[in-house]
């Protein structure tokens, strides 16, 4: 019997009121893998992450981490189970110093129901957390330089680093990054991409890259899912998808044609 995948999503449905943003999506991801989820604006990528991470309760379907059913659990529980999200638009805490932003990533992991016990647990783990902070600083030395600066007064690329660093402080085994490249200069995106690949290959942190920028995502990941209008339309190895006519035409600005989904490609890890 093979071990359960790190993340398994099964028939996930996310609704906002009556509007269906995600209509029964299944995908999975193994420990240490790099996987892309691409699709045009409004396809439901962020909704999928929000459904997985507990920001919105899925209307149907299941979310399993290590085979454990965590559907609809609070965001903190998902973080403790090993999945941390770097949200779209970075969402740093702008008035707090960079270092406080990072430490809150560790603090949030200790948060169960209320503030007092969370704070006590955090203080109890201070030593470990200091070590982790050092680790993040050594991975991203720029953050050490910026440690006292309010996060809102750093550049877009630096804020993306803060958001990634904050996520790493929770010691994730899977990092889900929503629109890494959005609004950032190509050189900055390249730096961040190299960093993430290094993080994946050297630290073994699995990555789920959620991107409108399909070129970037396919280049970084061995395997990808294509989402459109709330449904998966394609899945498979990145090099195959790159050759796929539908995907190619989508790069050029046209929408993906649902009807053109290749019959041969299946949603699921290629083995």
């Amino acid at each position: 019997m093979s071990a359960a995948p790190l993340l398994e999503i099964d028939g996930l449905v996310v609704k906002y009121g009556q509007a269906i943003a995600l209509d029964g999506v299944s995908l999975s991801l193994e420990a240490g893998e790099r996987v892309a989820l691409i699709g045009p604006n409004g396809a439901g990528k962020t909704s999928l992450l929000n459904g997985v991470c507990g920001l919105v309760k899925p209307a149907a379907g299941r979310v399993l981490l290590d085979g454990r059913d965590l559907t609809g659990r609070a965001p903190g529980e998902i973080v403790r189970a090993g999945l941390t999200q770097v949200p779209e638009g970075r969402q740093v805490f702008p008035t707090l110093p960079v270092e406080a932003n990072l430490l809150l990533g560790a603090y949030g992991r200790e948060f169960r129901h209320e503030l007092v016990s969370a704070t006590l647990r955090y203080i109890g783990r201070r030593g470990e957390i200091a070590v982790r902070l050092e680790r993040v600083y050594s991975l991203m030395p720029k953050l050490r330089e910026l440690r006292e600066r309010p996060a809102g007064r750093t550049s877009g690329g630096e804020q993306q680093m803060v958001a990634i660093g904050r996520a790493l402080m929770a010691e994730p085994r899977l990092l889900a990054i929503d629109e890494l490249s959005l609004g950032l200069a190509p050189l900055v995106v390249q730096d961040l991409s190299e960093f993430l690949v290094g993080l994946n290959e050297e630290e073994g942190v699995a990555l789920l890259l959620v991107e409108q920028n399909a070129v970037l995502a396919l280049e970084l990941c061995a395997r990808a899912y294509v989402l459109e209008a709330g449904r998966l339309v394609l899945a498979g190895p990145s090099d195959e998808l790159e050759r796929n006519e539908t995907v190619r035409s989508a790069y050029l600005g046209g929408g993906l044609e649902v009807a053109d989904a290749e019959p041969g490609t299946q949603a699921g890890p290629s083995s």
Partner: peptide, 30 residues
Amino acid sequence: TIAGQALVACADSRRAAELVGIDVRAVAVV
């Protein structure tokens, strides 16, 4: 203090505070 910063975090970005695992309702009570 980290607890104080957690309050500020909720004020700064409730969504991000939730995402790192802070229970925004519990913070509101405090």
